[in-house]
Write a protein that binds this DNA or RNA. Structure first.
Lengths: 176, 176
DNA sequence: TCTATTTCTGACCGATCGTTCAGGAAATTA
DNA sequence: TAATTTCCTGAACGATCGGTCAGAAATAGA
């Protein structure tokens, strides 16, 4: 997964995957039936974890505003915990059936969050002067960009990172 | 460029580029000396335009807060105007010298904006409880994510989009 | 120890990749 | 019209790709 991320899925050869694992190419093929099967495992792990956040109680109970906050924190947590897998998911372009299936599930996830934003606008906790789907996309643009730079070695843990994300997303960068 | 974006640079064959252009492969090679030369042209266009924003007067005159706002609007404008080129730039992973050179220029751009954020924190227009480099990365995570979904056909123009981005980034999604 | 299963190797396959090349058509210049 | 330059074709190149295969080594159970 790390090699996929460093070089990109398409630019990564099965030979370089095997070499990183200290195996021969054919030994790798003994465990996985194709290069794409490796990708599928990673994509399932990533999108499954994100979907899992939506089905936790915190994402359903309480006000829409509270649910939205819960989902955002959950998404940051999943991003950090499953960094490699989610990174791959976010870079998928739909070049095969497997990639398209993952994209479909991502779109369904986005749609669910958009509904949450819309509900929060209706209940008055989220400003209504910005289109819900634009707001959601900007929100997740910010959240998802974490995979581009966050490295677990840093002092900042997932919780602090989520605090920062929520602070910027909900209250903005401007001083009051 | 559109094909590069749809399929990803590595997954795109020169044959499919030529076919989209209605040319033969060798005709394409008459105009560009390699596949990577095409990428280089696009990356130069993208990063050059972004660097251009930094050297406009509005990015230097006025307070740090005003400069930051100007640069953010400029970045959104460049993203929309040069959508295909910037999309490619944002997906570069550093697999070759040309890609690494583009990444270096991107990092320099990010560093300059981070300094702007830091100055704005010092002058008090931007909240200081969030690390400047984290704030910058979140900001540009949001801005850059625009390439993933914005399509010029939509009703929303670059200016309105920039308004929304600035609204979320500076004042947050929460109602007051 | 004999057997059965899992794990692995190295050589090899056809397909596709980016790139080259000799030369033909089309357009431009004189 | 003749000469020159630009633009393009189709066939081919070596390299690398993802994947296969026959069988050897390692492991585990009896």
């Amino acid at each position: 997964m790390q090699v996929f991320i460093e070089q990109g899925y398409d630019a990564t050869s099965v030979a370089s995957l095997a070499s990183r694992l200290g195996l021969s190419k054919s030994a790798l093929y003994h465990h996985y039936e194709s290069k794409e099967a490796l990708l599928e495992v990673a994509l399932d792990e990533a999108i499954g974890s994100l979907e899992g956040v939506l089905s936790e109680p915190g994402a359903r109970d309480g006000s829409a505003g509270e649910s939205l906050e819960f989902v955002l924190r959950g998404a940051v947590r999943v991003l950090v915990d499953k960094l490699a897998y989610v990174t791959l998911l976010l870079r998928v372009r739909g070049n095969s059936d497997i990639e398209r299936a993952a994209l479909d599930r991502r779109r369904a996830f986005d749609r669910a969050v958009t509904e949450l934003v819309r509900d929060a606008q209706r209940e008055g906790t989220v400003r209504a002067d910005i289109d819900a789907s634009v707001a959601t996309r900007l929100l997740f643009g910010m959240v998802n960009s974490i995979v581009e730079w966050y490295r677990p070695a840093g002092a900042e843990g997932a919780a602090e990172l989520a605090d920062d994300v929520l602070a910027v997303a909900l209250d903005g960068l401007r001083t009051r």
